[in-house]
Design a protein around this nucleic acid. Structure first.
Length: 557
DNA sequence: GCGGATCAC
DNA sequence: TATGGTGATCCGC
C-alpha cells in the first residue's frame, strides 16, 4: 500500500492517481479518441509541486486503502457460507421486480454544453474556435476544445496548456438562467410538475399529457425539442423511458442532439442496462466506481453476479440502490420545481490565502452578509449553523451547531460563526486559511422569526390600532426612524440596519421565564404585549423574546 | 445531533 | 499562473 506513493508508480498511466486527473473526460461525450494519457500527464506536470497535488495524492491513497479493505473482506466472505446473503439478495430482487412500475412515460432533457451553447449563440465569432466558459476553473467548453482534452473542472491555466489557443469566456449566469427560464416555460405545457436538476437538465412525466391528447411520447418530445431549438437556439438531447434514471441514461446515449426512447418492457430494459458501466449511472461517482471495480463490479450485470457480497460491504441503502440499478428501477414521480422548498442556504468563498485574523474576519463578515441576503430571498431563517474552514493544504474542517432559535441576520450568523473560525485557526497554527463557508439548515418560515413578527406588528399598528405597540402605548412614541420603512415594504424584510439594534437579537433575554401552555388548542396571552399568541412552545418563546427585546429597542431609539 | 464524505451539476 | 460553489444525502458515531 505504501508503495503506491512511489513517484514512478504514481506516474504510470494506469495508476489511480493519473486516472483521477482524467476526471469526467473519462465518461463525457466529446472525448472519444482523445488521448487520455496526455490529459493526465499535462495535469500532472502542471500540478505536481503544489499543495493541491499532495492533497489529491492523500485522498487517492485513502481510497486505495479502502478498496483493499473491501477486497479483503470479500475474500473472507468467499471463504465462508454466503448462501443466506444470496437468498436475501434474491428476495429483494423479487420484491423490486414486483413493485416495478413501467406504466409511466418520463423524459430527461439535457441541454448540450449549455453554457457554451448559450455563449456561442450570443457571440457567433466563437463558433469555430476552441473556447471555455469559466472563471479560474472551466465550467463548460465546446466540442472543439474537448478534442484537445480541455474538460469541465480543469483549472484554466492547465486547460490553456492543453489547448494554447483556447479562448476564455467569463460566465454570465443571469443569461443562462434567462435561457433556462424560457425552456421551463416550454416544458410547462407538457408537464407543469417538471423537475429541474441543476442548471441545464430537467425531468418531465408526460404520461398524463399523452393520455389526454392521445399523442405518443416520441412525438411530444420531438415537438418540445423543436420548440426549445426554435425559441432559444439550444440543442437538447432527450431520453424517454419508464423512469427518470433510465431516461437520463437514454439521453446520454443520444447526446449531444437527438432523442432516444427505451421501450418499457422488462427484457428490453434489462438488456439495455446489462453491459452499461456502473459509472454511467447517476449516483455512482468516481469513488464508488473504484470501490465497485475493486470487487469485480464494472457493469450493471456484474451487480447481480456479486449480489451476495454487496449488503455486507456497502450497507443496506447502497445495496438496494445497486439492485435497482441492475433491474433498471427508478423514480417516476417528480418533485415539482415550482413547489420545492429549499432545505439549506449556504455561501462559501475562496480567497487569497491568509493567516491575518482581521482579513479572515472581514471575509467571514462578507460571507455572512451574503447568507443573509439569500435567506431573505427565501424568506427563511435557519436554526442549524454549519461553519466550514478550508486551509492552505486543502484540508477542511467544519462545525455544525443547533441554535436555540432560527437566525437570519448577518450579524447573528457572524457572531455564532466567528468563535469556530478562531478556534480552528488556533488549532492549526501553522496553516493558512483559503476558504470560509457558512450554511444554515433547518430552515423555518420567517413568519416565526423576530423580524417577521416585528413586521406583522408594525402592519397591525398601522392598519388598526396605532397604540398597539407596547412602547407606543406607554410613552406615545412613534416607530424608530430606522425601522419605519419596514411597514410599507411588500416583502418581509428583516430588521436593518443593524447598528442601533445590535443587542436586539444577540443578547437574548431570559427565554424560559414564563410557563408555556399545556393545551394545544388554546391561544395564550403574552404577559407583555397582552396579545393572544399561538400556543406552541417554540413560537411562543420566540414571541416572548421579541416582546422583551422591544423594550431594548425602545431604550436605544 | 455532529462531522466527514460523496455526488451531481 | 495555479484547483469552484451550491444543495442534498448518507454513514458512522
Amino acid at each position: 500500500m505504501a508503495s503506491s506513493t512511489d513517484s514512478d508508480s504514481a506516474l504510470r498511466p494506469e495508476s489511480t492517481l493519473m486516472k483521477s486527473f482524467v476526471g469526467v473526460a473519462d465518461i463525457k461525450k466529446g472525448y472519444e479518441g482523445v488521448d487520455r494519457d496526455k490529459i493526465a500527464r499535462t495535469v500532472y506536470e502542471a500540478s505536481k509541486d503544489s499543495l493541491y497535488f499532495n492533497h489529491q495524492q492523500k485522498r487517492d491513497q485513502a481510497l486505495t486503502e479502502k478498496c483493499n479493505a473491501l477486497i479483503e473482506r470479500k475474500r473472507c466472505m468467499e471463504e465462508s457460507d454466503t448462501s443466506s446473503q444470496l437468498r436475501h439478495a434474491d428476495k429483494v430482487v423479487a420484491r423490486l421486480k414486483d413493485n416495478r412500475d413501467l406504466s409511466q412515460s418520463t423524459v430527461h432533457i439535457d441541454c448540450d454544453a449549455f453554457y457554451a451553447s448559450v455563449e456561442q449563440n450570443d457571440r457567433p465569432e466563437l463558433k469555430d474556435v476552441p473556447f471555455a466558459v469559466g472563471d479560474t476553473v472551466v465550467a463548460a467548453c465546446n466540442y472543439i476544445a474537448r478534442k484537445t482534452g480541455c474538460r469541465a473542472g480543469m483549472v484554466i491555466a492547465v486547460a490553456k496548456k492543453m489547448c494554447p489557443n483556447l479562448t476564455i469566456v467569463k460566465p454570465n449566469h443571469d443569461r443562462y438562467r434567462e435561457v433556462m427560464a424560457k425552456i421551463c416555460q416550454l416544458m410547462q405545457k407538457y408537464d407543469p410538475g417538471y423537475e429541474i436538476c441543476g442548471t441545464d437538465e430537467a425531468y418531465l412525466n408526460i404520461t398524463k399529457y399523452c393520455g389526454e391528447f392521445d399523442v405518443k411520447p416520441w412525438d411530444v418530445v420531438e415537438s418540445l425539442r423543436k420548440a426549445i431549438r426554435h425559441e432559444t437556439g439550444i440543442a437538447v438531447a432527450a431520453g424517454i423511458a419508464a423512469n427518470i434514471q433510465l431516461a437520463k441514461i437514454s439521453s446520454t446515449f443520444i447526446k449531444p442532439d437527438g432523442q432516444y426512447q427505451l421501450p418499457s418492457e422488462p427484457d428490453i430494459i434489462m438488456a439495455f442496462v446489462k453491459d452499461l458501466p456502473v459509472r454511467k449511472v447517476t449516483g455512482v461517482g468516481y469513488t464508488l466506481d473504484r470501490q465497485l471495480a475493486s470487487i469485480g463490479v464494472a457493469t450493471c450485470e456484474d451487480i447481480f453476479s456479486q449480489r451476495q457480497f454487496l449488503r455486507d460491504l456497502f450497507g443496506d441503502r447502497l445495496f438496494e440502490f445497486l439492485l435497482e440499478v441492475y433491474l433498471g428501477c427508478g423514480r417516476t414521480e417528480l418533485r415539482a420545481t415550482l413547489e420545492q422548498q429549499k432545505k439549506s442556504a449556504s455561501i462559501e468563498r475562496t480567497f487569497k490565502e491568509t493567516s491575518a485574523l482581521d482579513i479572515i474576519e472581514r471575509n467571514l463578515r462578507t460571507v455572512c452578509e451574503d447568507v443573509e441576503t439569500k435567506l431573505k430571498e427565501l424568506n427563511r431563517a435557519g436554526q442549524t449553523l454549519t461553519v466550514k474552514v478550508k486551509m492552505n493544504d486543502f484540508e477542511s474542517y467544519s462545525k455544525q451547531t443547533k441554535l436555540p432559535r432560527a437566525i437570519s441576520s448577518a450579524h447573528d450568523i457572524f457572531q455564532h460563526s466567528l468563535p469556530f473560525v478562531k478556534a480552528t485557526l488556533v488549532d492549526k497554527p501553522h496553516q493558512v486559511c483559503r476558504l470560509l463557508g457558512v450554511r444554515l439548515t433547518q430552515l423555518a418560515s420567517k413568519d416565526y422569526t423576530l423580524g417577521a413578527a416585528f413586521h406583522r406588528m408594525v402592519q397591525k399598528s398601522k392598519n388598526s390600532d396605532p397604540e398597539y405597540l407596547p412602547w407606543a402605548r406607554e410613552k406615545g412614541r412613534s416607530m424608530p426612524a430606522g425601522k419605519r420603512k419596514l411597514g410599507g415594504n411588500v416583502e418581509n424584510r428583516e430588521l436593518a440596519p443593524r447598528k442601533k439594534t445590535s443587542n436586539f437579537a444577540t443578547k437574548s433575554p431570559a427565554r424560559n421565564s414564563v410557563a408555556t401552555p399545556q393545551s394545544p388548542n388554546e391561544m395564550v396571552r403574552c404577559p407583555i404585549c397582552d396579545q393572544n399568541q399561538p400556543p406552541d412552545n417554540v413560537s411562543f418563546n420566540q414571541h416572548l423574546d421579541f416582546c422583551l427585546s422591544l423594550s431594548e429597542i425602545q431604550r436605544y431609539s
